[in-house]
Write a protein that binds this DNA or RNA. Sequence first.
DNA 1: AGCCCTTAATTGCCTATGCAATTGGACGCT
DNA 2: AGCGTCCAATTGCATAGGCAATTAAGGGCT
Lengths: 249, 249
Amino acid sequence: MAHDRLDAVKLDGTGPIYDQIRRAVRDLILGGIWPPGTSVPPEHALMEQLGASRMTVHRALVQLAREGLITRRRRSGTVVASPPTTHAMLDILSIPAEVERLGQRYAYEVLARRDGRPSPELALRFGLKRGEKIVHLVTLHRADDRPHVLEERIIHLATVPAAASEDFARTPPGDWLLQHSLWSQAEHAISAVPAEPDDAVLLDIAAGEACLLIERRTWNQAAPVTAVRLLYPGNRHRFVGRFGPYGAV
Amino acid sequence: MAHDRLDAVKLDGTGPIYDQIRRAVRDLILGGIWPPGTSVPPEHALMEQLGASRMTVHRALVQLAREGLITRRRRSGTVVASPPTTHAMLDILSIPAEVERLGQRYAYEVLARRDGRPSPELALRFGLKRGEKIVHLVTLHRADDRPHVLEERIIHLATVPAAASEDFARTPPGDWLLQHSLWSQAEHAISAVPAEPDDAVLLDIAAGEACLLIERRTWNQAAPVTAVRLLYPGNRHRFVGRFGPYGAV
DNA sequence: AGCCCTTAATTGCCTATGCAATTGGACGCT
DNA sequence: AGCGTCCAATTGCATAGGCAATTAAGGGCT
């Protein structure tokens, strides 16, 4: 009901009213209470419900729109936006999309999977706690049949229990996670490493050849969601970003 | 004079008034007409000059403040902000600062310099036009006496003529350019490459070892300012960034 | 059903006004 | 000179009201 959605907006009384409204709506979106596609109550309804003037409500919503959390259209109203699938610096959230954007044919295979608690060396490599239950996956993505990137991934079952009963046969784990989990923060690290012998065979390159390693860890609030190491072979790959001195352009 | 500053703000009549004001002020800042520290006319002055209401002027200035171009304080007024020296993803604008942040001792030396027009292979590597006058520099930066990064840089003399009479003995070219030029856009590319034999000697690593290559080109408006290739040795370096699904956090 | 026209819901934008909060600077006192 | 007090400039925030632009939805006509 629209009534439910209206009632969900609660002000906390700290700071300017427009900012209370902004944070209240933002938290409903980031907390998953209002998933993408949900329609936000119109300004008049919020204005009456909250006892604020329309300009004040407007200011909060305009700011959220500028942050990309909602999209607004005259007459249609305001809806919660889908998180952008591309990111300015690292457009690598979906590997199938990345490959298809290059106009190449995408394929992938799951090379290994092990559920349970991490071995000591795995825990060390991904910064895991000994006791926690995880899924450990190794996946090879191909573009036009050539190896494109080797993916090694940890999924934290405490945060994403549904991963235990998914075989990732149709959807690669990165894309599956985008649909079945929320994330609020990510950390990327980029470095250059020589290819290990095992990895070199899989990527069809010489051992020791320079590879680009992208390590990404994501969290939802404080809970870890997933950690992944993406090994891109040789110097076939470049990651490009553009921005100005005051931020993204 | 304050009068000059007021007159400098010109609306173009396209789009909402608040946005015309925002763009007008932004262009004065980005164009270097109002350098950092310049005080922006108060809302009342702009309001009378432009014939807009104070709320409309306010809206434009608040937005510029949120974009980081200006800082505003009650009573003190509004001043043009200094561009932030750090960037979320690639905090590598100043290599001395980067090294000192790691708590290491910084040193550097200019290995080669050549002024004039680019050779064909240089033009190809940096995407230059044949005829233009440039400075070509090769610099080695050290951290605690160990090679830290090898820098090869082009400076476009048409855009930064002062570079011709600077010997870069005291200040490395990247830092010198930050002080003596403006830039409005940058493009970064990250890739992994094997070390060329010559470069390997300079970096004190084995030939063919994996290196991280950062290529950056910067422009001011449409005019190219500089292009640089930074070669970081081995896997001693990682570039880390954090953000959320809706942008930088 | 299909098509056009009107209506109304919703956001976008602007003005005018008022009060609150902050604080640089003037002023006066010692 | 140094110190405290007060004033006024400036921004921050909110309200009320109104008009414009967009467009989904309904109604009427063929």
